[in-house]
């Protein structure tokens, strides 16, 4: 994850809520705060997991999903790594990328923010993400 973040060798997808992404909260409301620091992995894009679903709980169409991820610079030309707080929500996004969009190289960072947010010496970015290309 550190090399992917530093070298921009993979698309990092943060699927938590926007408030968790910015660092405003450390965990979903009412759940245990399992990290020391708030924020996100530098270079990660914020694409909350629920955006892959319609209001009735069904998955969005392939075209809609490609547009959702593509708008954040995530496509099948680069490896993709999804993460959340404990790897549960990101497993949903991993499924979408792997089996609905057919990306070959997709991983779920099982340590997720509970690991990264407690690691000593790793960079943490707070606030909103940098614009693509900035």
């Amino acid at each position: 994850m550190q090399s992917a973040s530093k070298g921009k060798s993979a698309s990092l997808i943060d699927v938590r809520s926007p408030a968790e992404f910015t660092g405003e909260i450390l965990a979903p409301p009412g759940l245990p705060e399992t990290c020391q620091r708030g924020g996100h992995i530098p270079g990660a894009r914020s694409i909350p997991w629920g955006k892959a679903a319609n209001d009735d709980g069904t998955f969005k169409s392939r075209e809609e999903l490609a547009a959702l991820y593509g708008s954040e610079g995530v496509d099948e030309t680069r490896p993709a790594i999804a993460y959340c707080r404990i790897g549960e929500r990101s497993s949903h996004s991993w499924f979408v990328l792997k089996y609905l969009l057919g990306f070959e190289n997709v991983k779920n960072y099982d340590g997720s923010w509970t690991e990264w947010g407690n690691l000593v010496g790793v960079p943490v970015e707070r606030g909103t993400a940098q614009k693509i290309g900035a």
Binding site: E24, L31, E33, G38
Partner: peptide
């Protein structure tokens, strides 16, 4: 009880 423990941090 649970939600009152969730803190908001300045960003």
């Amino acid at each position: 009880q649970l939600l009152s423990r969730t803190r908001r941090h300045a960003v």
